[in-house]
Nucleic acid binder design. Sequence first.
RNA 1: GCCCGAAUGGCGGAACUGGUAGACGCAAGGGACUUAAAAUCCCUCGGCCUCUGGCUGUGCGAGUUCGAUUCUCGCUUCGGGCACCA
Length: 834
Amino acid sequence: MSAKKTQEISYDFQSIEEKWQARWQNAASYRVNIDKERKKYYVLEMFPYPSGRIHMGHVRNYSIGDVVARYKRLRGYNVLHPMGWDSFGLPAENAAIKNNTHPARWTYENINYMRRQLRQLGLSYDWDREIATCNPKYYRWEQQIFLEMYEKGLVYQKNTTVNWCESCHTVLANEQVIDGICWRCDEPVEARNMNGWFFKITDYAEELLEDLDQLSGWPDKVVTMQRNWIGKSTGLQCDFDVEGIDKKLSIFTTRPDTIFGVTFMSIAPEHPILDALLQNNPKENEVREFTKRTITEKQQQSNKDVIEKEGIDTGRFCVNPFNGQRIPIYVSNFVLMEYGTGAVMAVPAHDQRDFEFAKKYNLAIKAVVMPKDTDLDGKAMEEASILPGILHHSGIFSGIKSNEAQQKIIAHAQTNGYGEAKTTYRLRDWGISRQRYWGAPIPMIQCNICGVQPVPVDQLPVTLPEDRDSQQNDCTPLHQRSSFIETNCPKCGNKAKRETDTMDTFVESSWYFARYASPRFTNSPLNKEEASHWLPVDQYIGGVEHAILHLLYSRFFTKVLRDLGYLSIDEPFTNLLTQGMVIKDGSKMSKSKGNVVDPSDLIDEYGADTTRLFSLFAAPPEKDLEWNPKGVEGCHRFLNRIFRFVQTLAPASSIEKIRKPDEFNKTERELHRKIHQTIKKVTNNIEYNFHFNTAISAVMELFNTLTSLYGTTSKKEEAVNSVVIEAVETILILLSPMVPHFCSELWTNIHGDESSIESRSWPRWIEEATQEEELTIVVQVRGKVRSRIQVPADIDNARLEHIALQDENVLKFIGDQTIKKVIVVKKKLVNIVI
RNA sequence: GCCCGAAUGGCGGAACUGGUAGACGCAAGGGACUUAAAAUCCCUCGGCCUCUGGCUGUGCGAGUUCGAUUCUCGCUUCGGGCACCA
């Protein structure tokens, strides 16, 4: 459809939207400061990466947030609603290389463009608080937090196997590897040995897990995902003596009750004890060959495929401390060095994986836990039995129930000094080193004399070098820039080298929500007073794809910042709304699929208000939104209908027919009732479940009622009365969080240019006014609807039953059969059972 | 494999605590206005039948109940998460 054609049928959204955006900007309408008189409300949408242009996912996310912000303001809250840019990251480097420019330039150009797009949407942000994470004024504080964490022992460096993405040319955190694939570029990730910096998120594993219980305002799904990700298991860590060497083999098990069923031992190919085991061992070459092959296979294999279970006998034995039994030690390809102790006690009778392994290598299977009324025989078993039961063949523990035996066996090991209760987590420490240019430099120095030294806080920020002599792109990694590397040791003053890794961009987004409380503060990362006033975020809104990554890291940082004395809260986000994706033609909108709808085109054609309205109307926020261009037109038509109606309405001040409820005629009563029913419905929809789609439907119904009672324009004489004005005002206020320009404009049409809809407060419904005078009662015979009867609302059940039983149609269905029972549901229905 | 979630007209989606299934919108069909079209307005719109009425219908199969989209059990399909986790 051409713009011209649309113009003919539309209200002049372009000039209206420009007018109101200018007003809001000039008056700084959404600037916010601490106000002790009013309750605070902090609503935040996940800030965007400045990729170039706003997409429909952003429009949806920010429209939802803006409704919440505007609604809360009308409810009298002092609302903090900030916006900023998650502006470090790889795409900037790629674009810089492609266009021969500097990533900073590309990034800031994008920010400027996208800020303009957001303003065009009429989003009510406090732009004075805008931050960009690539600005040294932001990452300087991040470097300081890093140093304070280092001092607290929460940062360390280690050489370890890391996830390397060759296509992004950098290391990735575990959370950024999805099914063995890089979260950003979809290329497979390889294992590599490298030196890198880590945050000790595992120190907070228990608290991160426990506090999930507090997050009643989060979707269960996200809480569950985090719980699984942290992956806590409790059990026994137990030492087995190894025959012939002076070393112990330590295992971890969640099933200590099966320890008398151990028939072999599986250790990881990387296990450090292996060297000792292979000394003077005739099988050395054979075993070494196996481990070498397995390790290579593991590195090549993406962790998605389950590889065939394989193992090799080392020819060595260890001893079960509980019964002195000799146990062969195998190296197995499925044992992970990173989890537990890298060694597993194998109980084939009660673990399916061990069972298969035992069958393959013809190892003994010994059943020790007998489920109720069974007597398992290891030789005859066809699969492992994982059910609880009574312990057999288990020495002094025989006869005890398996769940009780767990604690007793752990206690026994503890008393005898060969084991203890142990908790392990799946969660790994967060590797934050990135070998890329466009990120916050890690503020550390390597001195040959003094070792690793932190950059003194008064020397912050360590800024990215910008040798912009040439017009060339400038993304050379830091380790290739001698001018950056060379420095002096802060301790001894001799020549030393700077750390050349930059921080994972998820570090920036882990605390930005706190910085918004005092974005220009220059004494420390956070102004404690401001932070304690505004935080936690009352409502956080964003895509579910961040369920683990960003949301887990932010929770971790909140606890760290608390322990560093900056925050007084335990959890950053009280309520979380995860919105669904925007779908077109069955798949997510993306450039590669060529199914993107550019929000700017929509704004040009229909205006920001229609664009916002549709994104809210088409589906409830947590569901995926199917894009339907015709649906947009439907929303546009709805606004046009209201516009036309209000255009023909006389100014409120000229209304002479001011009526009080007790003077209402039937039509006025009906409209008045609908007004209050709508206020109730919309308020509940926004307040409790963010179902904006049904909120909008309710307003549509109110408008439909209005026009069916008074005609599609209000030219008629009788339309000019106070109830009609109330209806229109209600429609405008209820819709104003969703279509703010439109409602602001029409409000001034009714009340004059000085009047502002935003200074009004959200309407309250009168419960009494929502009550129907007459009810439609359904009459069922044997559960089937046979008739509907109109009765006064205050009818009692006996009278209702009486009327129902006289209904002609009902009598027809009862015929000459006897009535067994009559069920009357107050104000709803009568069911006659025959 | 384990753990979550979902399934309702041609489509997006409604339905409070077990009580009128399909609100609202889109699409479609018919009509009014118009020289005509667009826009606007009005009507119809789950399926079937013997059509002022009736039967049937919320993924499938059972169950509880006077009554089930809603609760229970067993499946199917789709989506999401975790996955040699010891």
